[in-house]
Each structure stands twice: as C-alpha cells, then as structure tokens.
Amino acid sequence: MRVSKIRYYYPLGLFIALFLDGTLSNIFAGNFFTANVSIESRLFLLWVVMSVFFAKVEHPFFWAIAVGLTFDLFFTGIIGPFFMLVPFILYLTRVMYSFFTPSFIVVLLIYLIDIALFTLLFYWINVLIGFTSVSLAGFISGTLGPTLAFNLAVFVILYLPIKGLMEMSSR
C-alpha cells in the first residue's frame, strides 16, 4: 500500500502558511497596520479550507490544534484563542462542505465565511479579556473589511496551485 504524500505536505504547508502570515505582517507592517486599517493575513486558514475540499488528511483536528497552539505561543503569548478557534473553524468547514459540491465559488464563499467568523470571534475574545476597546463598527470597517479583501485576493491567486498540490499529493 502506497502512503499518500499529503501526510507530509499538509502539516508542512500548514506551518509554512502560519509563519508566512507572520512574515507578511512583519514585512508589510507599514501597509497592513495603519491608524485606520488593520489587515490580517490568514493563509493558514486557506490551507485548512482547501484541505477539507481537496485532500484526504489524516488527523486534521490534531493539526488544527497544533497550529492554533503554535500561533498562540509564538505570536500572542496567550494560550487559548487560536487553540480553540482553529479546530472550531475546521469543524464548521467540514459541516458546510457536506452540503456543497466543491467549486471555485463554493470554496471561496466558505473561506470568506470562515475568515469573517474567525476574525469576529477573535475580536470578541479580545474585547472580553480587555485587549481591545475598538467598537464593533470600527472593527468591521477597519479590520474585517480589509482582511476579507486581502484574503480574497490571495485566494484568487493561490486557489489553483494549492488545489493542484493537494489533489496530486492525495493520490
């Protein structure tokens, strides 16, 4: 029996996407984070969503927990928000997947729903623990909208390469 390459590519790609998110935020900090706008790159969510549709990943919740914990420890220093949110988003994506046939538009809409929900829940957690005092209207116009626009553009660019890689390595 042949072992599928996705077993190795999925965790590697997931962690590369996670650290690429941080690298993009660091390199383009002057453009991503201004007085009025805050753009959050969510490439690791793109990797998770695409894997639900186009790959047969073993133990996806383990990897979701691992990447969430890594994000919490590496970027925020608070264990909890991403540790809980990434597996939750994976679960919701799998539920939504069961109702649709994969296509560019379906995957795009589910990805945008996931980003919106993920970002909104992360905002809500930060409000609860007192890390932010931005109003909901300010958050939607200054963070959620630009984040969705940026990640939409990234999705359009990376959809075919990631889909091809996942389908090829899942065989």
Rank of each mutant, 00 (worst) to 15 (best):
W63H: 05
T23C: 09
N151T: 04
F74P: 05
A66P: 08
T147Q: 03
I16R: 08
A17M: 12
I105V: 14
V156D: 02
N151Y: 02
L148D: 02
G145F: 14
F19S: 11
M50G: 01
G145M: 14
F118V: 01
P81D: 02
R42Y: 07
F131E: 14
N36Q: 11
T93S: 06
V48H: 06
A29M: 09
V49I: 08
F82W: 14
T101H: 12
Y91G: 09
H59W: 08
V134F: 11
P60S: 12
F54D: 04
L128Q: 00
A149D: 00
W124F: 08
M50L: 13
V156S: 02
I115D: 02
G138W: 04
N26K: 12
W47D: 06
T70E: 13
V95R: 08
F83T: 15
T76K: 05
P146L: 03
V156E: 05
A137H: 08
I110D: 09
F150Q: 02
I110N: 10
F82C: 13
L117G: 11
G130H: 02
P146F: 00
L120S: 15
L117E: 08
I27G: 06
L92P: 01
I157S: 10
S141V: 10
S25V: 07
L24N: 08
F122K: 08
G80T: 05
S41G: 07
G30I: 02
N26H: 12
L158H: 06
S103I: 03
F122G: 12
S51H: 05
L69Q: 07
Y159R: 05
F44Q: 10
I140K: 01
E40L: 11
R42V: 06
V57Q: 12
F19T: 10
Y159Q: 07
L136G: 12
T101L: 09
S135R: 04
L43W: 07
V86G: 00
L117A: 10
F122S: 13
S41N: 08
L69M: 14
I105D: 11
S38P: 05
A35W: 09
D114K: 06
F44T: 13
T70H: 11
Y159P: 06
A66T: 11
L109R: 04
F54Y: 15
T147M: 06
I16N: 10
F61H: 12
G142S: 05
M50W: 06
A137I: 13
W47A: 06
G30M: 02
V86K: 01
F100P: 05
I157T: 11
A55H: 10
L18R: 14
L43D: 15
I125C: 00
I115L: 02
S51F: 01
M96C: 10
L136C: 10
I39M: 11
F118E: 04
T147K: 04
F28A: 12
W63Q: 04
P146K: 01
V48M: 15
I115Q: 01
L85I: 04
G30K: 03
I125F: 09
S141M: 08
G30R: 01
Y91S: 11
L128R: 02
I16V: 15
R94C: 04
P102H: 09
G130P: 03
N36V: 08
A153E: 00
N126A: 06
V106L: 00
F139Y: 05
T93E: 06
F61K: 09
T23R: 06
T76F: 05
F53N: 06
P146E: 03
A149W: 01
